[in-house]
Nucleic acid binder design. Structure first.
Lengths: 160, 160
DNA sequence: CCAAAGTAGTTTGGTACCGAACGGATTGGG
DNA sequence: CCCAATCCGTTCGGTACCAAACTACTTTGG
């Protein structure tokens, strides 16, 4: 148990709360925040990328190009947020925007050659960092972790 | 499998990457982001609280009062960030700051009566939301999820 | 046709959040 | 003592992020 979990138990253990859900969801946050900061410091900082910016490059790497609406969805960002981040990435010359001929409201985003070079070099480093973050877990445990989180994600999306 | 996971596999499956770690860590983020937004919309919004602000109130609820350095650590925030958020919470009259007599650089933070009232009313709602987010998981699975995340958290802290 | 409704991305205003620089308070070696 | 190093919280400059208002474009119904 983490110190925090123990203290919560000591302080609130007599209340009619759902502690199993509490610990699970609290730890999702603790994990995400801690990993994010660690990633920005150890891996992304030297490339001048935020975690969000990295995610955009990664998504474009996997899918080649994508319209902004879908990209915002994939990156779990509000569309207004994505606009700003794409502007930042455009200034860094890592992505380009192009209006669609078929519908001039829409915008297609893709990696530049430099963007491709960066994510090609960076992603293996990031993946190795992911390995470090899951050190001590067996492959089966990693899969189980991914599986359980998948259920949580679907629940969270469902009510949206 | 989530669509995103499937597409990654299709696109990068032939590369020498650690996919078990990739899926596990990616899903930690997806889950955290999705839950956070959902929580702010469904539970915290009506109280005018951000997720971070709520976390501060929650920590103070469990520990009664806390110095800023420890509070920042518990909430996974940079100390500069905490200063701003405490100012917001002070304006909302939910917390108070008090310099220590023994060391005038230090600041003790505690809930106001109103802050206590709010978190007392809000936390059960939030805990019920946590239950919704883990619907479909057995108690054992929730514990397993918390356990696996705990290992990740410790790894992430360790290198810091 | 064309106006009204709908859709897509951007702009805006505000909070959250970080790292680095700052300034007051404390502590320790000489 | 004393001042230099250290320690704390705050301030500062900048990005990330959201929701809501806005603008430009497309679709639809009469």
């Amino acid at each position: 148990m983490l110190d925090a979990e123990r203290d919560v138990q000591a302080r609130l253990g007599d209340r009619p709360l759902d502690f199993a859900s509490l610990d699970a969801i609290s730890n999702v946050y603790r994990a995400a925040g801690t990993i994010r900061r660690q990633a920005e410091r150890e891996v992304l900082g030297e490339y001048g990328l935020s975690f969000g910016g990295f995610t955009i490059l990664w998504v474009l790497w996997v899918w080649d190009e994508m319209e902004t609406a879908r990209l915002a969805e994939e990156c779990s960002l509000a569309k207004g947020t994505l606009t700003g981040m794409l502007t930042t990435l455009e200034k860094q010359q890592l992505v380009t925007r192009q209006k669609l001929d078929s519908d001039k409201r829409r915008v297609m985003v893709s990696l530049t050659a430099e963007g491709l070079r960066v994510i090609d070099e960076l992603f293996p480093k990031f993946n190795s960092f992911e390995g470090d973050m899951t050190a001590g877990l067996s492959v089966e445990e990693k899969r189980e972790l991914a599986r359980l989180l998948r259920k949580v994600i679907i629940n969270a999306r469902g009510d949206g």
